[in-house]
Design a protein around this nucleic acid. Structure first.
Length: 369
RNA sequence: CCCCUCAUGGUGUAAUGGUAGCACAAAGGGCUGUAGACCUUUUAGAAUCGGUUCAAAUUCGGUUGAGGGGA
Protein backbone atom coordinates (compact mmCIF):
# COMPACT_ATOMS: atom_id res chain seq x y z
CA UNK A 1 0.00 0.00 0.00
CA UNK A 2 1.52 3.29 -1.09
CA UNK A 3 -0.60 5.44 1.22
CA UNK A 4 -0.54 5.34 4.99
CA UNK A 5 -2.93 7.39 7.11
CA UNK A 6 -1.16 8.59 10.25
CA UNK A 7 -3.91 10.47 11.98
CA UNK A 8 -7.60 11.03 11.47
CA UNK A 9 -9.41 14.11 12.70
CA UNK A 10 -12.28 13.24 15.04
CA UNK A 11 -14.64 16.11 14.25
CA UNK A 12 -14.19 16.23 10.48
CA UNK A 13 -13.14 13.68 7.87
CA UNK A 14 -9.71 15.25 7.51
CA UNK A 15 -6.68 13.04 7.80
CA UNK A 16 -2.94 13.28 7.35
CA UNK A 17 -0.51 10.67 6.22
CA UNK A 18 2.39 9.67 4.02
CA UNK A 19 2.19 8.86 0.35
CA UNK A 20 5.07 6.73 -0.89
CA UNK A 21 6.21 7.01 -4.50
CA UNK A 22 9.18 5.93 -6.62
CA UNK A 23 10.87 9.29 -6.05
CA UNK A 24 10.18 9.61 -2.37
CA UNK A 25 7.56 10.23 0.24
CA UNK A 26 5.00 13.00 0.24
CA UNK A 27 3.37 14.26 3.40
CA UNK A 28 -0.37 14.65 3.01
CA UNK A 29 -2.44 16.66 2.56
CA UNK A 30 -0.54 18.48 -0.18
CA UNK A 31 -0.92 20.85 -3.10
CA UNK A 32 0.71 20.37 -6.51
CA UNK A 33 1.53 23.30 -8.76
CA UNK A 34 0.98 22.73 -12.47
CA UNK A 35 4.13 22.25 -14.52
CA UNK A 36 2.44 21.50 -17.84
CA UNK A 37 5.37 21.48 -20.22
CA UNK A 38 8.34 20.98 -17.94
CA UNK A 39 8.22 24.35 -16.22
CA UNK A 40 5.54 26.29 -14.38
CA UNK A 41 4.47 29.66 -15.73
CA UNK A 42 6.85 32.22 -14.25
CA UNK A 43 8.30 29.71 -11.79
CA UNK A 44 11.39 27.63 -12.36
CA UNK A 45 11.79 24.21 -10.79
CA UNK A 46 14.32 25.82 -8.47
CA UNK A 47 11.65 28.30 -7.35
CA UNK A 48 9.33 25.37 -6.64
CA UNK A 49 12.00 23.58 -4.68
CA UNK A 50 12.65 26.69 -2.61
CA UNK A 51 8.99 27.06 -1.62
CA UNK A 52 8.96 23.40 -0.53
CA UNK A 53 6.91 21.96 -3.34
CA UNK A 54 6.81 18.25 -2.62
CA UNK A 55 5.40 17.20 -5.95
CA UNK A 56 3.93 18.75 -9.12
CA UNK A 57 1.82 17.64 -12.04
CA UNK A 58 2.79 17.68 -15.71
CA UNK A 59 0.75 16.93 -18.78
CA UNK A 60 1.23 13.71 -20.72
CA UNK A 61 -0.31 14.96 -23.95
CA UNK A 62 1.67 18.20 -24.04
CA UNK A 63 4.92 16.35 -23.31
CA UNK A 64 4.11 13.83 -26.03
CA UNK A 65 3.78 16.71 -28.51
CA UNK A 66 6.95 18.44 -27.31
CA UNK A 67 9.65 17.42 -26.69
CA UNK A 68 8.14 14.08 -27.79
CA UNK A 69 8.74 10.55 -26.64
CA UNK A 70 12.00 10.04 -28.56
CA UNK A 71 13.69 12.92 -26.76
CA UNK A 72 12.29 11.79 -23.43
CA UNK A 73 13.66 8.29 -24.03
CA UNK A 74 17.07 9.64 -25.04
CA UNK A 75 17.09 11.89 -21.98
CA UNK A 76 16.51 8.77 -19.86
CA UNK A 77 13.11 9.88 -18.67
CA UNK A 78 11.36 13.07 -17.78
CA UNK A 79 12.78 13.40 -14.27
CA UNK A 80 16.24 13.34 -15.73
CA UNK A 81 15.34 15.63 -18.63
CA UNK A 82 14.15 18.43 -16.34
CA UNK A 83 16.39 17.53 -13.38
CA UNK A 84 13.72 17.11 -10.71
CA UNK A 85 14.38 14.44 -8.13
CA UNK A 86 11.09 14.48 -6.28
CA UNK A 87 7.77 12.87 -7.25
CA UNK A 88 5.82 13.87 -10.36
CA UNK A 89 2.20 13.27 -11.33
CA UNK A 90 1.18 13.33 -14.97
CA UNK A 91 -2.27 14.19 -16.16
CA UNK A 92 -3.54 12.12 -19.05
CA UNK A 93 -4.73 14.95 -21.29
CA UNK A 94 -8.37 14.49 -20.36
CA UNK A 95 -8.59 18.12 -19.34
CA UNK A 96 -7.72 19.18 -22.88
CA UNK A 97 -11.11 17.83 -23.99
CA UNK A 98 -12.46 21.12 -22.72
CA UNK A 99 -10.20 23.22 -24.92
CA UNK A 100 -11.32 23.73 -28.54
CA UNK A 101 -7.72 24.48 -29.47
CA UNK A 102 -6.89 20.85 -28.72
CA UNK A 103 -10.05 18.81 -29.12
CA UNK A 104 -11.28 17.42 -32.43
CA UNK A 105 -13.63 14.52 -31.70
CA UNK A 106 -14.08 11.46 -29.54
CA UNK A 107 -15.64 8.03 -29.57
CA UNK A 108 -15.56 5.00 -27.29
CA UNK A 109 -12.19 4.14 -28.83
CA UNK A 110 -10.50 7.34 -27.75
CA UNK A 111 -9.97 10.98 -28.56
CA UNK A 112 -8.66 12.83 -31.60
CA UNK A 113 -6.65 15.81 -30.50
CA UNK A 114 -4.92 18.39 -32.61
CA UNK A 115 -1.60 19.93 -31.87
CA UNK A 116 -1.72 23.65 -31.13
CA UNK A 117 1.87 23.83 -32.40
CA UNK A 118 1.31 22.69 -35.98
CA UNK A 119 -2.33 21.58 -36.28
CA UNK A 120 -1.37 17.90 -36.71
CA UNK A 121 -3.85 15.28 -35.53
CA UNK A 122 -3.15 12.75 -32.79
CA UNK A 123 -5.22 9.86 -31.51
CA UNK A 124 -5.20 9.22 -27.78
CA UNK A 125 -6.71 6.11 -26.29
CA UNK A 126 -6.82 5.00 -22.65
CA UNK A 127 -4.09 2.49 -23.54
CA UNK A 128 -1.86 4.92 -25.41
CA UNK A 129 -2.01 7.42 -22.57
CA UNK A 130 -0.70 4.75 -20.18
CA UNK A 131 2.09 3.87 -22.60
CA UNK A 132 3.11 7.52 -22.90
CA UNK A 133 3.08 8.13 -19.16
CA UNK A 134 5.18 5.03 -18.80
CA UNK A 135 7.76 6.52 -21.16
CA UNK A 136 7.63 9.83 -19.28
CA UNK A 137 8.26 7.85 -16.12
CA UNK A 138 6.05 9.86 -13.82
CA UNK A 139 5.55 8.53 -10.32
CA UNK A 140 1.80 8.75 -10.64
CA UNK A 141 -0.13 8.36 -13.88
CA UNK A 142 -3.72 9.42 -14.38
CA UNK A 143 -6.16 7.46 -16.52
CA UNK A 144 -7.74 9.10 -19.55
CA UNK A 145 -11.22 10.20 -18.55
CA UNK A 146 -14.13 11.79 -20.37
CA UNK A 147 -14.31 15.20 -18.77
CA UNK A 148 -17.17 17.40 -19.90
CA UNK A 149 -17.55 21.09 -19.22
CA UNK A 150 -19.98 22.30 -16.56
CA UNK A 151 -23.70 22.94 -16.96
CA UNK A 152 -24.46 20.63 -19.89
CA UNK A 153 -27.40 18.23 -20.10
CA UNK A 154 -27.47 15.18 -17.84
CA UNK A 155 -27.31 12.91 -20.91
CA UNK A 156 -23.83 14.27 -21.65
CA UNK A 157 -22.57 13.37 -18.16
CA UNK A 158 -24.20 9.97 -18.25
CA UNK A 159 -22.35 9.10 -21.45
CA UNK A 160 -19.13 10.57 -20.06
CA UNK A 161 -19.50 8.60 -16.84
CA UNK A 162 -19.99 5.31 -18.67
CA UNK A 163 -17.03 6.01 -20.89
CA UNK A 164 -14.84 7.06 -17.96
CA UNK A 165 -15.57 3.76 -16.17
CA UNK A 166 -14.90 1.74 -19.32
CA UNK A 167 -11.67 3.59 -20.04
CA UNK A 168 -10.53 3.14 -16.44
CA UNK A 169 -10.77 -0.64 -16.86
CA UNK A 170 -8.89 -0.55 -20.15
CA UNK A 171 -6.15 1.60 -18.64
CA UNK A 172 -5.72 -0.76 -15.72
CA UNK A 173 -5.45 -3.72 -18.10
CA UNK A 174 -2.40 -2.35 -19.86
CA UNK A 175 -0.68 -0.74 -16.88
CA UNK A 176 2.34 -2.93 -16.09
CA UNK A 177 4.89 -0.53 -14.64
CA UNK A 178 5.40 -1.51 -10.98
CA UNK A 179 7.27 1.72 -10.26
CA UNK A 180 4.39 3.87 -11.37
CA UNK A 181 1.18 4.31 -9.43
CA UNK A 182 -2.09 4.64 -11.32
CA UNK A 183 -5.07 6.74 -10.25
CA UNK A 184 -8.65 6.31 -11.40
CA UNK A 185 -10.96 9.30 -11.85
CA UNK A 186 -14.58 9.77 -10.81
CA UNK A 187 -16.79 11.77 -13.17
CA UNK A 188 -20.56 12.33 -13.18
CA UNK A 189 -21.03 16.07 -13.26
CA UNK A 190 -23.02 17.34 -10.29
CA UNK A 191 -25.51 14.45 -10.36
CA UNK A 192 -25.86 12.28 -7.26
CA UNK A 193 -26.70 9.05 -9.05
CA UNK A 194 -23.94 9.43 -11.64
CA UNK A 195 -21.28 10.41 -9.09
CA UNK A 196 -22.24 7.55 -6.81
CA UNK A 197 -22.35 4.95 -9.55
CA UNK A 198 -19.04 6.13 -10.98
CA UNK A 199 -17.39 6.21 -7.55
CA UNK A 200 -18.57 2.67 -6.77
CA UNK A 201 -17.30 1.34 -10.10
CA UNK A 202 -13.94 3.10 -9.92
CA UNK A 203 -13.57 2.03 -6.30
CA UNK A 204 -13.93 -1.63 -7.29
CA UNK A 205 -10.88 -1.41 -9.53
CA UNK A 206 -7.32 -1.84 -8.32
CA UNK A 207 -6.15 1.72 -8.48
CA UNK A 208 -3.43 3.07 -6.21
CA UNK A 209 -5.31 6.31 -5.70
CA UNK A 210 -8.68 7.79 -6.46
CA UNK A 211 -9.34 11.14 -8.05
CA UNK A 212 -12.43 13.30 -8.31
CA UNK A 213 -12.51 15.13 -11.61
CA UNK A 214 -14.77 17.36 -13.63
CA UNK A 215 -15.32 19.98 -10.95
CA UNK A 216 -14.56 23.68 -10.47
CA UNK A 217 -15.51 24.25 -14.08
CA UNK A 218 -18.32 26.73 -13.64
CA UNK A 219 -20.91 24.82 -11.59
CA UNK A 220 -22.09 26.43 -8.35
CA UNK A 221 -19.98 25.99 -5.22
CA UNK A 222 -22.88 24.23 -3.55
CA UNK A 223 -23.12 21.71 -6.38
CA UNK A 224 -19.37 21.23 -6.37
CA UNK A 225 -19.25 20.43 -2.66
CA UNK A 226 -22.17 18.04 -3.01
CA UNK A 227 -20.49 16.28 -5.93
CA UNK A 228 -17.35 15.85 -3.82
CA UNK A 229 -19.43 14.33 -1.03
CA UNK A 230 -21.30 11.98 -3.37
CA UNK A 231 -17.99 10.78 -4.78
CA UNK A 232 -16.06 10.39 -1.52
CA UNK A 233 -18.86 8.50 0.15
CA UNK A 234 -18.23 5.47 -2.05
CA UNK A 235 -14.45 5.58 -2.25
CA UNK A 236 -12.20 3.40 -0.12
CA UNK A 237 -11.25 5.44 2.92
CA UNK A 238 -7.77 3.92 3.01
CA UNK A 239 -6.80 5.07 -0.46
CA UNK A 240 -5.39 8.49 -1.23
CA UNK A 241 -7.94 10.96 -2.63
CA UNK A 242 -7.10 13.57 -5.21
CA UNK A 243 -9.44 16.45 -6.04
CA UNK A 244 -8.38 17.50 -9.51
CA UNK A 245 -8.09 21.11 -10.54
CA UNK A 246 -9.25 22.69 -7.30
CA UNK A 247 -7.02 25.43 -6.02
CA UNK A 248 -8.82 28.25 -4.26
CA UNK A 249 -7.84 28.46 -0.59
CA UNK A 250 -11.43 28.09 0.66
CA UNK A 251 -12.18 25.13 -1.59
CA UNK A 252 -8.98 23.44 -0.47
CA UNK A 253 -9.55 23.86 3.25
CA UNK A 254 -13.19 22.76 2.94
CA UNK A 255 -12.18 19.71 0.90
CA UNK A 256 -9.46 18.70 3.34
CA UNK A 257 -12.24 18.56 5.92
CA UNK A 258 -14.11 16.21 3.63
CA UNK A 259 -11.17 13.82 3.43
CA UNK A 260 -9.31 14.96 0.31
CA UNK A 261 -5.55 14.39 0.44
CA UNK A 262 -4.20 16.17 -2.58
CA UNK A 263 -4.92 18.97 -5.00
CA UNK A 264 -3.53 20.53 -8.13
CA UNK A 265 -4.50 23.77 -9.79
CA UNK A 266 -3.34 26.60 -11.96
CA UNK A 267 -5.33 28.93 -9.74
CA UNK A 268 -2.51 30.32 -7.55
CA UNK A 269 -0.21 31.04 -10.49
CA UNK A 270 -2.90 32.46 -12.74
CA UNK A 271 -4.19 34.67 -9.95
CA UNK A 272 -0.65 35.82 -9.23
CA UNK A 273 -0.08 36.81 -12.86
CA UNK A 274 -3.26 38.85 -12.71
CA UNK A 275 -2.23 40.57 -9.49
CA UNK A 276 -4.59 38.75 -7.11
CA UNK A 277 -2.76 37.65 -4.03
CA UNK A 278 -3.73 35.21 -1.31
CA UNK A 279 -3.53 36.24 2.32
CA UNK A 280 -5.03 34.71 5.45
CA UNK A 281 -7.35 37.70 5.54
CA UNK A 282 -8.60 37.09 2.03
CA UNK A 283 -7.41 37.60 -1.50
CA UNK A 284 -6.31 41.09 -2.39
CA UNK A 285 -6.09 42.84 -5.73
CA UNK A 286 -2.62 44.32 -5.61
CA UNK A 287 -3.26 46.49 -8.67
CA UNK A 288 -5.46 48.74 -6.59
CA UNK A 289 -4.09 52.20 -5.99
CA UNK A 290 -4.58 51.84 -2.25
CA UNK A 291 -1.44 49.68 -2.08
CA UNK A 292 0.87 52.26 -3.61
CA UNK A 293 2.24 53.44 -0.26
CA UNK A 294 1.84 50.36 1.92
CA UNK A 295 5.34 49.34 2.94
CA UNK A 296 4.42 46.10 4.73
CA UNK A 297 4.99 42.71 3.15
CA UNK A 298 2.01 40.81 1.69
CA UNK A 299 1.91 38.80 4.94
CA UNK A 300 4.23 39.36 7.88
CA UNK A 301 3.97 35.70 8.91
CA UNK A 302 4.69 34.28 5.43
CA UNK A 303 8.10 32.66 5.00
CA UNK A 304 8.35 33.08 1.21
CA UNK A 305 11.20 35.11 -0.28
CA UNK A 306 8.76 37.68 -1.68
CA UNK A 307 7.30 38.44 1.74
CA UNK A 308 10.72 38.44 3.36
CA UNK A 309 12.20 40.90 0.89
CA UNK A 310 9.53 43.10 -0.64
CA UNK A 311 6.74 45.49 0.31
CA UNK A 312 3.24 45.72 -1.12
CA UNK A 313 4.18 49.17 -2.39
CA UNK A 314 7.11 47.81 -4.42
CA UNK A 315 5.11 44.89 -5.80
CA UNK A 316 2.24 47.23 -6.67
CA UNK A 317 4.69 49.50 -8.46
CA UNK A 318 6.05 46.63 -10.56
CA UNK A 319 2.55 45.39 -11.30
CA UNK A 320 1.44 48.80 -12.55
CA UNK A 321 4.45 48.91 -14.84
CA UNK A 322 3.58 45.41 -16.05
CA UNK A 323 7.10 44.22 -15.33
CA UNK A 324 7.30 40.46 -16.03
CA UNK A 325 9.45 39.81 -12.98
CA UNK A 326 6.66 40.66 -10.56
CA UNK A 327 4.74 37.65 -11.86
CA UNK A 328 7.54 35.48 -10.51
CA UNK A 329 7.48 37.20 -7.12
CA UNK A 330 3.70 36.93 -6.78
CA UNK A 331 3.55 33.34 -8.05
CA UNK A 332 6.11 32.39 -5.42
CA UNK A 333 3.90 33.82 -2.72
CA UNK A 334 0.61 32.33 -3.93
CA UNK A 335 1.95 28.81 -4.34
CA UNK A 336 3.84 28.99 -1.07
CA UNK A 337 0.60 30.20 0.53
CA UNK A 338 -1.17 27.00 -0.49
CA UNK A 339 1.76 24.85 0.63
CA UNK A 340 1.70 26.58 4.02
CA UNK A 341 -2.06 26.20 4.23
CA UNK A 342 -1.71 22.43 3.81
CA UNK A 343 1.36 22.18 6.06
CA UNK A 344 -0.65 23.98 8.75
CA UNK A 345 -3.66 21.77 8.11
CA UNK A 346 -1.48 18.71 8.61
CA UNK A 347 -0.12 20.10 11.88
CA UNK A 348 -3.64 20.86 13.10
CA UNK A 349 -4.86 17.39 12.15
CA UNK A 350 -1.96 15.90 14.10
CA UNK A 351 -2.86 18.04 17.09
CA UNK A 352 -6.55 17.23 16.78
CA UNK A 353 -7.51 20.86 16.29
CA UNK A 354 -8.23 20.93 12.58
CA UNK A 355 -11.88 21.88 12.87
CA UNK A 356 -11.17 25.05 14.82
CA UNK A 357 -8.36 25.92 12.43
CA UNK A 358 -10.65 25.41 9.45
CA UNK A 359 -13.38 27.56 10.98
CA UNK A 360 -10.99 30.36 11.79
CA UNK A 361 -9.47 30.26 8.34
CA UNK A 362 -12.83 30.46 6.60
CA UNK A 363 -13.94 33.30 8.87
CA UNK A 364 -10.77 35.32 8.29
CA UNK A 365 -10.62 34.59 4.59
CA UNK A 366 -13.00 37.26 3.48
CA UNK A 367 -12.17 39.95 1.00
CA UNK A 368 -10.49 42.66 2.95
CA UNK A 369 -10.35 45.40 0.33
C1' C B 1 7.46 93.37 -34.54
C1' C B 2 5.91 90.15 -38.69
C1' C B 3 4.68 85.30 -40.86
C1' C B 4 3.33 80.05 -40.52
C1' U B 5 1.34 75.75 -37.87
C1' C B 6 -1.49 73.97 -34.00
C1' A B 7 -5.24 73.70 -29.68
C1' U B 8 -10.35 67.16 -28.90
C1' G B 9 -11.21 62.84 -21.82
C1' G B 10 -5.67 62.45 -17.05
C1' U B 11 -2.07 61.35 -21.51
C1' G B 12 -1.44 60.33 -26.83
C1' U B 13 -4.40 60.50 -30.98
C1' A B 14 -8.93 59.69 -35.01
C1' A B 15 -13.07 61.55 -37.63
C1' U B 16 -14.11 67.51 -43.45
C1' G B 17 -20.62 70.24 -41.75
C1' G B 18 -24.97 65.69 -39.49
C1' U B 19 -24.11 59.49 -33.52
C1' A B 20 -17.11 62.67 -31.04
C1' G B 21 -14.04 56.82 -32.06
C1' C B 22 -9.41 54.31 -30.48
C1' A B 23 -5.16 53.25 -27.24
C1' C B 24 -3.01 53.93 -22.60
C1' A B 25 -4.12 55.70 -17.62
C1' A B 26 -7.98 55.55 -13.53
C1' A B 27 -12.08 52.74 -10.70
C1' G B 28 -14.70 47.86 -10.40
C1' G B 29 -15.56 42.46 -11.62
C1' G B 30 -13.91 37.61 -13.20
C1' C B 31 -10.23 33.57 -13.49
C1' U B 32 -9.88 26.48 -10.12
C1' G B 33 -6.47 18.57 -13.90
C1' U B 34 -2.88 26.26 -18.28
C1' A B 35 -0.76 28.19 -24.87
C1' G B 36 -4.56 33.64 -22.96
C1' A B 37 1.48 37.81 -18.86
C1' C B 38 -5.80 37.35 -20.05
C1' C B 39 -11.00 38.69 -20.41
C1' U B 40 -14.79 42.17 -18.96
C1' U B 41 -17.58 46.61 -17.06
C1' U B 42 -17.44 51.71 -15.86
C1' U B 43 -15.75 56.72 -15.53
C1' A B 44 -13.94 60.73 -18.29
C1' G B 45 -13.31 65.07 -23.80
C1' A B 46 -14.05 69.99 -28.19
C1' A B 47 -8.83 76.41 -24.80
C1' U B 48 -12.04 80.91 -24.85
C1' C B 49 -15.65 84.72 -26.89
C1' G B 50 -18.57 85.72 -30.99
C1' G B 51 -20.37 85.02 -36.38
C1' U B 52 -22.32 81.85 -40.66
C1' U B 53 -25.78 77.46 -40.78
C1' C B 54 -31.71 73.71 -39.73
C1' A B 55 -27.02 71.66 -37.92
C1' A B 56 -19.97 73.47 -36.23
C1' A B 57 -14.62 69.49 -33.26
C1' U B 58 -14.96 70.56 -38.55
C1' U B 59 -16.27 77.09 -41.66
C1' C B 60 -15.15 82.58 -40.47
C1' G B 61 -13.28 86.52 -36.96
C1' G B 62 -11.32 88.07 -32.05
C1' U B 63 -8.76 86.57 -27.51
C1' U B 64 -5.45 83.30 -24.91
C1' G B 65 -1.76 79.57 -25.11
C1' A B 66 2.03 76.18 -27.47
C1' G B 67 5.61 75.17 -31.35
C1' G B 68 8.41 76.77 -35.67
C1' G B 69 10.38 80.55 -39.05
C1' G B 70 11.83 85.74 -40.39
C1' A B 71 13.56 90.78 -39.25
Amino acid sequence: MSFKIEKKDKKTKARCGVFKTEHGKIKTPFFMPVVTKGIAKFLTLKNLDEIKTQCFISNCYLLYLKPGKEILKKAKGYHNFINWKKPIFTDSGGFQLKNPQFFISMSDKGVWFKSPFDGSKHFMSPEKVIELQNIIGSDIAMVLDDMQDANLSKEVYKKATDRTIEWAKRALNVHKNKNQLLFGIVQGGVYKDLRERCAKEINKLKFDGLAIGGLALGESKENMYKAIDYSLKHLDEKKIKYLMGVGSPEDIIISVGKGVDCFDSIYPTKMARHGHIFTRKGAINLKKGSYKDVFDPIEKECDCSTCKNHSLSYLHHLLRLDEPGVKILLSIHNVRFLHRLLEDSRREIEKGTFEAFQKKFLKDYKKRD
